[in-house]
């Protein structure tokens, strides 16, 4: 059983992904290569620089408070793998 990097295992769990052993080994190798490549970002001269979240520098547009969408329930429920009594069904959740 290959060593599992705990940080990457944690990331996979957070992302609800569970690769099998073969996949996992390869994934870990690839991820480490990517993260190594990405290390060079640490050397960047960004001491006083603000993060750039959007290339656009515009404010959020605002929408009038109108109801523009009607009941499309049948259409939408038809897309789902499992529905019943108008609900989307999932295995029972204990809360």
């Amino acid at each position: 059983m290959p060593q599992q990097d705990p940080a990457l295992r944690h990331a996979a769990a957070l992302a609800r992904l569970q690769p099998d052993d073969a996949e996992r080994a390869r994934l870990e190798r690839d991820l480490k290569a990517i993260l190594r490549m990405v290390e060079r970002l640490q050397a960047a001269p960004v001491a006083e620089v603000q993060p750039l979240y959007h290339p656009l520098e515009l404010p959020a547009p605002l929408r009038a408070d109108q109801v523009t969408e009607g009941d499309q329930r049948a259409l939408h429920l038809a897309l789902a793998p499992s529905t019943g009594a108008g609900y989307y069904l999932v295995p029972r959740v204990l809360d």
């Binding site: 940080a7 990331a11 992302a15 994934l27």
Partner: peptide, 18 residues
């Protein structure tokens, strides 16, 4: 998610989560 996504997608999603 594991069965639905291909390898590259999983790679990027895990990288991104990390």
């Amino acid at each position: 998610r594991t069965e639905g996504f291909g390898a590259e997608v999983k790679r990027r999603v895990i990288t991104g989560t990390h």
